[in-house]
Write a protein that binds this DNA or RNA. Structure first.
Lengths: 372, 372
DNA sequence: CTGAAAGCGCTTACAG
DNA sequence: CTGAAAGCGCTTACAG
């Protein structure tokens, strides 16, 4: 019944242990390998580091011995000697919101595939000194960094990273596009995503589209820019964007405001969580989705498809972006001036059932809308 | 427009850098501190390790110097010398599902507060050899481990951890309760949670409650046991539990089966994602929630409150559990035979609107139910 | 209470 | 192509 059980020292190994369980002695070192292979330990070092000047037969023999003994180089020793650790730590303001979480997942996958260890360090503060401290602690000698910079804490952390640590970052679409100083950054095309969503809503017959904004780390959020552009290109009026947060609750609050305005027939929400809250507020106010109000989000989180109604949204592949970010970092660490052109995950509009034609002008009876 | 920008070497430090940005030289070592403080570097070592035999005035002076110089001990060197690294790595089958993700969050918070670095390593496989490999790679000399063992991969990993590495684990409620060999495990009270939910549903007037099960890592899931118990104590019939997965999609599929059975009026779902899928399936089949079917979940994820209808669920505080798990680990590493009795986060039924009285027997018109 | 010495496991010039 | 030597930054007995 208790949440916490107790131990008096490490638990003994379970019966049929098998595999590599329960060794217990000091791990096998480069010296053990050398002894077993009948070479000097320096030769072993050369083999495991892929140094060219080793006779092929020697190399092969040593490699076999490494396998047999299950030798794994001691990271600490390696780092101490000045080589990089084969580790990234992800510096992020958050691990639970979708974009961060999916990004972290992608980074972990890619890093693991490359034999890198991955660390996580959350920066909560937005106070300069605390950010600096967090950054300092996040970067160990021999390590590298990926910072997820989707908000103020993130961008501040990004700026506080010493120039001599290998680093890459996931960021919002920079305002200048690819212009200006090249930086080790990856991003999804926020502007294009917003254009797709807004155009879609307009194509359904809405006079305009309201925008519920995420907090932005940049001066001019490219999602907002894209939304604005699409509206302008259609000659639609541009309502003032509503400032929102990140969570369903924030969406719910904004949704109450939106629901009170009968002129609102279509809402583009900065992410799916916001959209969820807006939908809830609409339902609670008796406004039907999509008959009375259309709602579209960004992300395509795992729940979006199973909401009622299923949420129309723009899929943003943050996991893939995380993989790309790690690939960038790795390229940077290997050949310093390479130009890695990673595949870019393009935003994709996923049409489901939360958006439809606007209601007929008052007086007429509403139409059931099929989003096709 | 491109997802990946490019760099030719580390970007120069931005203009008004400030703070500790951009140092660039080798970090300050114990020798630098010693020199600055006018003592031997051994004394510095003693001070930073809290060794008792240092004159108070010396200690204070050295500490001040450490502060001034921003000295941070080199983890690699420390580890190499045989001390623990002040790091945990979380070994988990998953980083995105709610329980895992929230657990990781809690661990990260607690670890950070204790000055520990945290690593993450995902074990995907369920093949013995691959698990063993993952475990080996997860544990570096001087490190410690937290394994999240809510499924087969997790429990296999848990079993494969060598007995000499400091470890704690988040697990399902063990069948034997606190009985048997004490282990460094923490858990939430699954049985009690299920009893609460089932009793609540029964109290609403349902003849019985159907159970959509999560995959369990144990022989006898205590959630299922609790559900069964509550049914038995009420003399209600016990339908066969439906086997489910973890995701909304899995819930949706099971929901289609359940929706086809007119005898189903109340469904207890292994988690909120499953509940979400079930609700979707019910809606899609024209069965109203809660008028026709009541649905209850476990977890209280951030979206639960904003679903339509808002989901009644049992809150399981995995973040707090993660904190407790780290506290256990720390206690184990410090005073080996302590009996840390951490606060236990009790499951809590959160009544919202997805459950209500059962529909009246066929022929009568359904009642609108208010869950109060 | 404090200094001098050895060594953790590895890599990297330096000789052969 | 392969050995012997030095040293990364720290901690831990060992002498004073």
């Amino acid at each position: 019944m208790a949440v916490t059980s107790v131990t008096s020292g490490p638990a003994p190994s379970p019966g049929g242990g098998g595999a590599a369980a329960g060794r217990g002695q000091r791990p096998v070192s480069i010296l053990d390998v050398a002894a077993a292979a009948g070479v000097s330990y320096q030769t072993v070092s050369r083999v495991i580091n892929g140094h060219p000047s080793v006779r092929p037969s020697t190399r092969q023999h040593v490699q076999a011995t490494v396998e047999n003994l299950g030798f794994r180089p001691n990271r600490a020793a390696r780092v101490l000697r000045g080589r990089h650790a084969g580790s990234v730590t992800v510096l992020t303001p958050n691990t639970t919101l979708y974009g961060y979480q999916a990004g972290l997942q992608g980074i972990e996958e890619a890093a693991r595939a490359a034999g890198f260890a991955v660390g996580v360090r959350v920066v909560e503060s937005t106070v300069r000194a605390e950010i600096a401290d967090a950054v300092t602690r996040a970067v160990e000698p021999g390590g590298s960094l990926i910072v997820i910079a989707y908000d103020r804490a993130g961008t501040m952390a990004l700026r506080a990273v010493p120039t001599d640590v290998p680093m890459a970052a996931m960021v919002e679409t920079p305002a200048g596009g690819n212009t200006g100083r090249k930086r080790p950054w990856v991003w999804l095309d926020d502007r294009r995503a917003a254009i797709q969503a807004t155009r879609y809503l307009l194509s359904l017959g809405h006079q305009t589209v309201h925008y519920l904004a995420l907090p932005s780390s940049t001066r001019t959020s490219q999602r907002q820019v894209g939304w604005h552009e699409a509206l302008a290109e259609a000659g639609a009026p541009v309502p003032a964007p509503l400032p929102g947060g990140w969570t369903p609750r924030s969406g719910y609050e904004a949704g109450q405001v939106l629901a009170a305005d009968p002129g609102v027939t279509a809402v583009l929400c900065g992410n799916d969580d916001l959209a969820l809250g807006v939908m809830r507020a609409m339902h609670a106010t008796g406004r039907a989705i999509p008959e009375d109000v259309s709602v579209v989000g960004f992300d395509d989180t795992p729940v979006a498809e199973f909401l009622t109604p299923p949420l129309t949204t723009v899929r943003m592949d943050f996991a893939e972006l995380g993989r790309a970010c790690f690939a960038l970092l790795l390229a940077l660490m290997e050949h310093k001036d390479a130009l890695p052109h990673t595949r870019r995950p393009e935003p994709e509009l996923i049409v489901r059932e939360s958006a439809g034609p606007p209601p007929l002008p008052r007086g007429s009876s509403p139409t059931r809308a099929a989003a096709t």
